[in-house]
Amino acid sequence: MSEKASVLQGFKAFLMRGNVVDLAVAVVIGAAFTNIVNSVVKGVINPLIGAIGTKNLDSYNSCIKGPCTGTGDTATGVRILWGSVLGATLTFVITAAVVYFLMVLPMSKYLAKVEARRKAKEGTQEVMEITELEVLKEIRDALVAQRGSGHAER
């Protein structure tokens, strides 16, 4: 029974780590964000492309074998559905761009500023430590000099 309790405690500790909670939040936000990007692609990008051709990217395809007739399950022949690939690629590029420019880039700049402040603070502490070390050396040298002159008088 204690082995089961330790497994449950280990699982609880794993779940309560900051990384796991952050990852769960990222997955939930990513899933919600995917719906927004899909809507942008279907509602904005596809109609812009539709100005040139058809509004539905999925309808763009090429027939490579046999007579390609019908659509969906009743289709015959071998088709390459390059419109679907193009739509998925656009969705990916838009998602990646938004994640990079709205999340990764600002976080990188923030972390760089924090690191620069930390290094500046460390540099100040080093200067103070070096100064203190120099003062302590001077005191030591003065004490050694006094002790040496005191021994010479005796």
Rank of each mutant, 00 (worst) to 15 (best):
S39D: 10
I139V: 06
K121Q: 01
E132S: 04
T124Y: 13
G77N: 06
L111D: 06
K109R: 15
T91G: 15
G148V: 14
T34W: 01
A112K: 02
M16C: 05
Y60K: 03
M1S: 13
S84R: 15
A32T: 06
G83I: 00
L48E: 09
A120T: 01
A5S: 07
V25C: 00
E122H: 05
S59I: 14
E153S: 13
I94L: 11
F11H: 07
S2H: 13
R79Y: 06
T124I: 15
P106M: 00
M128K: 15
H151A: 10
L133E: 13
N19D: 05
G10S: 09
A96T: 12
V7Y: 13
V98P: 04
P67H: 13
R79H: 07
K55I: 15
G18T: 06
I94H: 04
D58T: 12
G70S: 01
N38C: 07
L8A: 06
V93A: 14
A51C: 09
G43F: 02
A26C: 04
A152G: 11
W82R: 01
D141V: 03
K42C: 11
N19L: 05
L111T: 08
V99Q: 05
M16R: 03
G123A: 08
K121M: 00
A145E: 12
R147I: 11
L8T: 06
R117E: 15
L105D: 11
M16A: 07
P106E: 00
A152V: 14
